[in-house]
Design a protein around this nucleic acid. Structure first.
Length: 103
DNA sequence: CTGGTGACCGCTT
DNA sequence: AAAGCGGCCACCA
């Protein structure tokens, strides 16, 4: 653990399949609930695509980020459904698929 | 070197 | 009840 980024990547990497986490949740698990912005930037640089499941990260409303740069927001939704996370109305049911921080 | 911005969230008025 | 603003870190010009 050197900087906040490493912490964030560590938390995001721990997200189990078929579950999603919010930026605030990741920020809180990383150590500071106000790093939500840093979390977004951290995933933006995404140093290891394919290793860090950035598609499992959504905002607190359960909606995927509009600035998703994988090839379109549809791509993220498709990947989530592939893992078993249904996206209804462009939104994920956080009450049911929100990662509680426990594997 | 300084200023401003960004995949956000929470509190205050 | 709704709207607006600030705050933390890192990177770019």
């Amino acid at each position: 653990m050197k900087n906040s980024f490493e912490q964030i990547y560590e938390v995001v990497r721990k997200i189990p399949m078929g579950r999603v986490a919010t930026y605030g949740q990741i920020a809180a698990l990383a150590g500071n609930p106000r790093w939500s912005r840093v979390v977004g930037y951290a995933l933006h640089v995404n140093p290891e695509p394919g290793v860090i499941p950035c598609h499992r990260v959504v905002n607190r409303f359960g909606e995927p980020s509009s600035a998703f740069a994988f090839g379109g927001v549809n791509r993220q939704i498709l990947m989530l459904e592939e893992e078993g996370v249904p996206v209804v109305g462009g939104r994920v049911d956080l009450s049911r698929y929100l990662w509680d921080g426990h594997i």
